[in-house]
Design a protein around this nucleic acid. Sequence first.
RNA 1: CGGGGCGUAGCGCAGUCCGGUUAGCGCACCUGCUUUGGGAGCAGGGGGCCGCAGGUUCGAAUCCUGCCGCCCCGACCA
Length: 492
Amino acid sequence: MSKHLTKRSDNYSKWYNELVVKAGLAENSAVRGCMVIKPYGYAIWEKMQQQLDIMFKETGHENAYFPLLVPKHLFEAEEKNAEGFAKECAVVTHYRLKSDDNDKTKLVVDPEAKLEEELVVRPTSEAIIWNTYKNWIQSYRDLPIKINQWANVMRWEMRTRLFLRTAEFLWQEGHTAHETKEEAVEEAILMNNVYAQFAEEYMAMPVIKGKKSESERFAGAEETFCIEALMQDGKALQAGTSHFLGQNFAKAFEVKYANKEGKLDYVWATSWGVSTRLMGALIMSHSDDNGLVLPPKLAPFQVVIVPIYRNQEQFNLVSDKAKTIQKDLQANGITVKFDDRDTHKPGWKFAEYEMKGVPLRIAIGPKDIEKGTVELARRDTLTKSFVSADDVSGTVIQTLEDIQKNLYTKAHNFTTNHTKFIDSYADFKAYIENEGGFAECFWDGSAETEELIKKETKATIRCIISEDDLEGKKCMYSNNPAKAKVLYAKAY
RNA sequence: CGGGGCGUAGCGCAGUCCGGUUAGCGCACCUGCUUUGGGAGCAGGGGGCCGCAGGUUCGAAUCCUGCCGCCCCGACCA
């Protein structure tokens, strides 16, 4: 492993790519656009999953699993959804290989084994799920259905980047069915709020909640709610989306229920998801030129203990102390790794855990044993202090809380400092070009304005913040009466 | 799919223009000794179908042709 990471100020994108690899989170694989998520990276994803799963269950959802492959006729049933995803679908056309007649060591697709109907590798699961819900729903007594699935999906993207955009990615997708429009809208908003809460409390990442403009909406949705986060390079990252699907899928799949009056009606739907892209968001929100910085609530281990010693006798002494502290911390619910490997030196370990973003490091050496102290090093501030070995747990618990808060505060200040209200297009262009960040602006609600601004500046409407109090407000671009206050930014 | 670049050890690269001993360097790896409070030092060692397939030549990593793959910039996107 090389010693240094490219600096963010030199090349942000290179910094990110190197960081993901050097911190042991993920790497590119032999499959185009698909990544291998390595154990340390997967451990973070598991932490995210565990917490989200708890939150989904608290809001009344159950997990289930639907097939990876979707028959083409089902996939095309909801027109807009099909059209939106058609360009990036992997398709299974055959079910068998055979050895090549010209070269027995090679395999070729057996032309005899062509499928009568192609199977689409799911880019999202609405189709297969709604086709299933059709069989599950007859009466209002069958509603609501609130299901989540943890799965992989595939979207054949042109250009991929580890975690931010890969051809295959892991995510969760919630799919719910409701009696009324109001209930479905409420559900979509609720889940967007759950995402926002997760981002802020666990990822320590401030987000802006809003809804998408029509052009940025999910294919097949009536309304898309989203959370947007600002990365350190001033670009926005869509961190989660929650869709109110209206009756579009119910109509496409003929999902009707008998209501309390005995009349048949189409059900109302939502879907919502967050993906391994959250890993990218987490990495970019807090990390620095020394490597990853993780919030304590999502770190695979919150504390690492590094022993320092010259000989076996010292090691035994230090190791005893370390194990006592480790047990005590574990008893307090803190995850601790004691790195007693003799194959690497302390300095190497310090650098390594800094790269991996472990929130707190405890070093214990002969001097500490003498003085009854340990050295405590914070990853977020890179500061070190000596604390009494008698109450390490108390100090650690307090410090971990501080770190979690500090990361949020830092990110929040960054977002606030890089969010500007702008009402002149000239200022807007200069801001997007030179500073980067969120721009709050009034918008006339037209797709033309949106499109032109995108063409001229590469900034897009990340979300609509509000549609109230627009009396006398003018669109920054067209000067026409404003229909909404929106957030613009260049996006990932 | 348009424009640019690159394929040489696990990783990062030099060598290619101008063909010529045994293909080299850094990191990593292995062995030994000394080390261990911020990525240790010295000594020794292992590892290459030079992207693939043809061609030119006495001789090809180097020249020619074709193919494949990857990266970057655009269009597309959670």
